[in-house]
Structures are given as C-alpha cells and as structure tokens.
C-alpha cells in the first residue's frame, strides 16, 4: 500500500543531474581507453614475441664463443665428425664436439609436412567439393560439424593414437624396420590438418557466386564439370589459403611428431626411417638445456626460424589471395 501514498512522479526518473552526466562521461572515456588498450595488445604481444625469441638467440651472433661453436658454416655445411669418415650434416648439440647442422631437422620437417599434405590436401579439398557442391543439404549439415570436431582433438591425443595404434598397424601392414617413422608421423599429422583444409576450402567454395554455377550449367556443363572447372578455379585463392594454413599448422605442430616420428635426426629421403623435426627438437631438448649455453641459443634460433617461416607464409599467401580475389571481382589489380 505504500506505493499508493508516494507521488507518481517520483517513479519516473528525471533527467540525470550534471554530476551524473559528468560521471558517465568520465566512464565513457575510461572504457574507450581500456578497450583501445586491449585492442593494441595484439600488436604489442606480437612485437614482444619477436623481441624475446630473437633476444635469446642473439648470443649466437654477439658472443664470440657461441659464434665459434655455431658458425654459419657449422649450421649449414657438412662438417668433419670422425676420422676416416666423409664430412656430414649432423645434429647433436650435446656431444663433446657439438654438431649443429640444421639440415637434418629441416629435412625431417619437410618429410612429415609433405606426407601430411599429400594425404590431407586431396582429401580435404575433395570433401569440401562434396559438401559444397554435391551433398544433399541434410548430409552437409552434419558432415561439416563432424569434421570440425576432428579439429578439436588435442594433438597429444592424436600423437598417442599414432604411437600406440597407427604405428603398429602400419608396421604389420608394410613391414617397416622402424616402428616410428616419418610416414607414421605424417599420417597422424594429416588428421590434424585435414579439418583446417576442409573447413576453409568449403567456406571458399560456398562463397563463389551462384551465377557462376548457373552459367556453367546453362552452357551444358555437367555437375562435375561445373564444380571442377568453374567453381574450384573461382575459389582457388581461398583453397590455396586453406592449404597454406594447413602447411603452417603442420610445420609448427609439435606433440604429434615428438611422439610418433622416432626423433632421430637423419639426413635421408626415406619415409620409413625415423625422423626429427624442428618443432620436436625444441620441445625435446629445451627441458635439459643449460640456459645461456650455445645449445639454448640454438633452440631459440630454431624457434625464430619457425616464427619467421609462418609469418612469411601468411603474408605472401595473404597478398596473393587478395590479388586473386580482386581480379575475380573485376577490380583493376
């Protein structure tokens, strides 16, 4: 009953007082500053990342001892390692005479990435063609989320699947001398990158204007010819972007190769031999390294190489995709 005794006017808020308006304005400014700060954080973090990864690798250039232990020649050229043997490319930074050739690691990374891409690229793009061009829409609505679920499997789970199950299955099927090898790691890696390639390719194919398909079909092309010779080329920039992202993921992926590749730093083209990648080397050796040693600097150098590789890959692919897209839209390029 008390409400009735109160004047009705009091229930309606009057205009805010000058004080309240000032407060609101101050808040407004504060929020804008905070939000802008958060927005800039990404730039700051990226710069910090460059600075701090490079800073820890810098002694390789500045420190005379480290410069001697890991000279450019030792990093890149074959080195004598034992009397009576030809100079070789070896990675064994903890031996008495550290051997610091980066080639075994780079080759290992290329092998695993190559296998992963050889499997995941055709499978991912074909599956994307299926869901965007051929599949009934009901099927599409559950195939896409299902494949996206695959992307959510932690790489350590894929790694232990490869280590425990896939490696044994492949060995009994093909009779490999080594249970863990580049092929096992590459196949497990393809599971990690196929959802990336599939999802982005599917998005790119769906973004192709419907008029393209209608025109091709009206000219008498079959459904497959329309998809493969009209829609796929039109979506090429996006599909290429998907492949590039897949490569980037494969090159940087650590746990799968650490667990399934056998981790022997060999210079060899044989996929059935154990192999060691750049990323796995950092993960495996960082734990035991003495901070400030040449070895530690080398591992940060490997990290800097991975970082720069991904940056260059992203930038060039991004530029290419933008140029191609601009041409497709008919804008002067």
């Amino acid at each position: 009953m008390r409400e009735l005794t109160q004047p009705a006017v009091a229930a309606r808020p009057g205009p805010p007082s000058v004080d309240a308006q000032r407060r609101a304005a101050r808040w407004d400014l504060l929020v804008e500053l905070a939000v802008t700060g958060a927005g800039v954080a990404g730039i700051v973090l990226l710069l910090l990342m460059i600075v701090f990864v490079v800073r820890e690798a810098l002694p390789l250039v500045l420190d005379p001892v480290q410069r001697e232990q890991a000279s450019l020649a030792k990093l890149l050229l074959p080195q004598p390692w034992r009397d009576g043997h030809a100079p070789a490319l070896l990675w064994n930074p903890t031996s008495k005479v550290p051997k610091v050739s980066v080639w075994p690691l780079v080759i290992g990374t290329l092998k695993v990435t190559g296998v992963a891409l050889a499997v995941a690229a055709p499978a991912g793009v074909a599956a994307a063609l299926f869901t965007s061009e051929f599949a009934p829409s009901r099927l599409r609505t559950w195939v896409k989320p299902t494949i996206e679920l695959l992307a959510g499997i932690p790489s350590v789970v894929l790694g232990s699947f490869a280590l425990m199950t896939l490696a044994s299955a492949l060995q009994s099927a093909f009779g490999f001398d080594f249970r863990l090898n580049a092929l096992v790691a590459g196949l497990a890696m393809s599971l990690a990158i196929v959802p990336v390639i599939y999802t982005l390719s599917d998005d790119a194919l769906r973004a192709v204007p419907h008029t393209y398909r209608e025109a091709a079909l009206a000219l008498g092309a079959t459904r497959w010819e329309t998809a493969f010779r009209v829609v796929l080329p039109a979506a090429a920039p996006g599909v290429l972007g998907a492949l590039v992202l897949g490569v980037g993921r494969a090159v940087g992926e650590t746990m799968i190769v650490l667990m399934a590749s056998g981790n022997a730093a060999l210079v060899s083209a044989n996929l059935a031999e154990p192999t060691r990648t750049v990323s796995a080397t950092i993960a495996a050796e960082m734990g035991e390294v003495v901070m400030g040693s040449t070895h530690a600097s080398l591992l940060f150098l490997l990290g800097a190489i991975l970082f720069v590789f991904n940056l260059v890959l992203n930038v060039t692919a991004g530029a290419w995709v933008r140029a191609r897209l601009a041409r497709r839209e008919g804008a002067p390029s």
């Binding site: 990342m49 820890e56 940087g252 992926e253 990323s279 950092i282 990290g303 991975l306 991904n310």
Partner: peptide
C-alpha cells in the same frame, strides 16, 4: 598462425 611451440619459447 604462430606455432604453439614458439609460444612456449616466448
């Protein structure tokens, strides 16, 4: 796009 192991180094 930065590999997760590089985040570890950072």
């Amino acid at each position: 796009g930065v590999p997760s192991i590089v985040y570890g180094l950072f």
